[in-house]
Nucleic acid binder design. Structure first.
Lengths: 265, 265
DNA sequence: CTAGATTTGTTCGTATGTATC
DNA sequence: TGATACATACGAACAAATCTA
């Protein structure tokens, strides 16, 4: 602990802001101010060195910061340099995932959210689906059927989640769409290591297909109440299955390993 | 010649992964594998240079990456070096915010989420609130009362949001808590530039206080149904007010500026 | 297809600021 | 106060990637 009795405990040690961080901040603002879009280029390292009057390493650290934040990618060669990237959805998802990696999260908690959000999502896209969207949804259903018929259970589970990603694409609420997509990606990962044999797989796959078909039907009829009801039932069913899958996974793990062994990673 | 005629030319340009990125990845894994927690230190630059057999600049870029991701902070002086940071909630929130900055988002969309999530949050903390939590909630209510009485409307709106942050602290669902906290921070920002004079401010402040008091009551009684009902009504009321605030803000903007002028910031 | 030009990626050496003892 | 250990920053070089003639 520090020992300063007289001075008001300065919570902000007022550490000098690193030059590279200042430059990174300034570059961020310039990107926003000059309305730079995907494909545009920032000045190259040499030009930035002259502009800011600093050394190469400093510029590189600043650009590294922007790169990690998903704002630019570096490219070598003539006409190379820092190029502005489209948008950093994945960077945001990656950070959120990194945060959750240190928290303990189970299916019940994921579905507590998913139950609400997917219903909202479904209601939001009623009347907004284009013929292309319907085509994608039905192509996904067909793919699910094939996967189930061939007994590829794990694949079936993964493809089923894509159905909901398509709905996210059609949503006009970017925040809701982001969160639903994020939950979907979580499910894909959580299911990956648990897709071993399970007797309920066939029944679950069939039930999902029926739900998805009913949803498409309700979307076509633009029947908001039907969408709400179907989606809610769909989520509850899925949660129930996932919980059993998780329970089986845990007991399998318990019987296969001595207590105290660490989980697979 | 015949560099690779038989080998399938990788369609992915397969850009060599930068050394600094490889090292950053490896350091990430080491942090996870060795279960390094807040306060622990990574080896200093010199040691890392020896370990990876590379130069200072490369190590510094790798560490910069970890720093931006919120995993470490750099410290000078003896016993300095890269120190592991608690957890990067704010890094995740920052990235998500950066993503949403480029999307268009209005109050209706925020509240479409908040309506569902805050109810979930309230239900989740029923029976989990400690005496300390209750004390904080009531201190917040008192602070709101004071702010309203003194006519500090903007402050009142901000403090009211803190009430919901306290509920997030008490939740056992980290994902739900993160999202609610994020929505709260969005609201704080959205309200900041719109808290000009509005006749409904007093009525809204009073209504919020009543809702918060009723919520604390329901939490004390551990009455889940009452929590659900109160929170839902609270959210709907808040949404209604925010929409009017937003509408007034937009008309003010329209009358004050010629069409085509860009919005602030 | 090779050769050269351009730009990032990486290295080494050195100097300065900063915090601890 | 000075000495020490560390991050921060500078500058000059070379290596690798990539576009163009």
């Amino acid at each position: 602990m520090s020992s300063d009795a007289t001075m008001t405990e300065a919570p902000a040690p007022m550490r000098r802001i690193k030059l590279s961080d200042q430059i990174a901040e300034d570059l961020c603002r310039r990107i926003a101010r000059e309305r730079l879009g995907p494909g545009d280029r920032l000045p190259n390292e040499a030009a930035l060195m002259r502009h800011y009057g600093c050394a190469k390493g400093t510029i590189r650290e600043a650009l590294k910061s922007l790169e990690v934040q998903g704002l630019v990618t570096m490219q070598s060669g003539p006409n190379g340099g820092p190029e502005i990237r489209p948008i950093s959805v994945e960077a945001a998802a990656r950070q959120l995932r990194r945060f959750l990696h240190f928290q303990e999260l189970d299916f019940a908690q994921v579905y507590a959210l998913r139950r609400s959000l997917e219903v909202q999502l479904g209601l939001g896209v009623v009347g907004r689906l284009t013929p292309q969207d319907f085509a994608r949804l039905e192509a996904n259903i067909a793919e699910c059927e094939a996967a189930n018929a061939e007994g590829r259970r794990g694949i079936g589970r993964i493809v089923e989640v894509d159905f909901h990603d398509i709905l996210c694409d059609a949503s006009d609420n970017p925040l809701l769409a982001f969160m639903c997509r994020f939950l979907n990606s979580l499910l894909r990962d959580l299911v990956e290591f648990r897709s071993e044999s399970l007797t309920e797989h066939e029944a679950f796959g069939a039930h999902n297909l029926a739900s998805h078909r009913a949803l498409v039907c309700a979307f076509r009829a633009e029947d908001a109440d039907a969408v709400r009801g179907e989606m809610h039932a769909h989520m509850c069913c899925a949660e129930h299955f996932m919980q059993r899958l998780d329970a089986k996974f845990r007991t399998d793990l318990l019987s296969a390993r001595t207590p105290g062994a660490r989980a697979a990673e």
